[in-house]
Nucleic acid binder design. Structure first.
Lengths: 128, 128
DNA sequence: AGTAAATTACGCACCTTTTTGTAACCATGA
DNA sequence: TCATGGTTACAAAAAGGTGCGTAATTTACT
């Protein structure tokens, strides 16, 4: 997706959120601060290069904040900006819409949306 | 983007909505029934192959309805399903989030004068 | 009257462009 | 020597564009 074709903000958002990784990364970062290697562990199928690229893109879009600590080995932390946190419920709504529109065929994933925060709950369950 | 990597519904939605065309097509179809050639005129930079592919994808996702009328030349009409119409406000919200998050600091756009309406219009081409 | 061309919504094959993966390299403190 | 968080170069894969074919009827022209 090289260029914009319209002046529509929705096209601009999609330019950032399109693809497999952006939304997944946002969801992992929703749980709190993560490091580069954490994100790679969370999602082993993303390549080293892609992770760096996607993180940079999200950073440029103001969704992710990158904090670099000096020293060696270099330590870098990633988390959501306030804007990124405001984005999360919108993506939730999309997920809810999706399961609502075709949730009549399957649905056995019983990870209930409990209140107690366990770790790595990236699989959302939209039951409403 | 070939395969899913998680069982997250958001990843499934993004598989359908990712890319330049899906959201644009939905926006054009929001105005009412369109034919294949209408959509090509609305958006001259999409190739006929892509348009056919994207429409099929949206149809499979239950967002767009395809109605074929017999005869020659074959006539086919496209419009949004009810689910597709329910999706529109969610995309609007994303667009609003976008303009809200970066219409803030970067002082370059002089458009934001006038009343304090936070409501943002999606700029569409007036091609009718 | 007869023929040619245009129309609509694609499918298919071929080719180019864009994206993504792989592997290697960097810097340096423990 | 290994670990961290990258970057770069090259290769592979995927996405996308172009042009042709299709079908039956209408219109355009001779």
């Amino acid at each position: 997706m090289k260029d914009l074709v319209s002046r529509c903000p929705i096209e601009e958002v999609m330019q950032v959120l399109s693809g497999r990784w952006p939304t997944l990364l946002i969801y992992y970062l929703k749980d709190g601060i993560k490091r580069f290697s954490d994100l790679r562990r969370d999602n082993p199928t993303i390549s080293h290069k892609m992770l760096a690229l996607e993180l940079r893109k999200l950073e440029d879009a103001g969704i992710v904040r990158r904090t670099e600590f000096g020293g060696y080995p270099l330590r870098v932390e990633y988390d959501l900006t306030p804007a990124g946190e405001r984005l999360v419920p919108l993506m939730d709504a999309l997920g809810d819409w999706w399961v609502a529109t075709n949730g009549n065929d399957e649905g056995q994933d019983a990870v209930s949306s409990g209140a107690a925060g366990t770790q790595t709950a990236h699989i959302r369950q939209a039951a409403n």
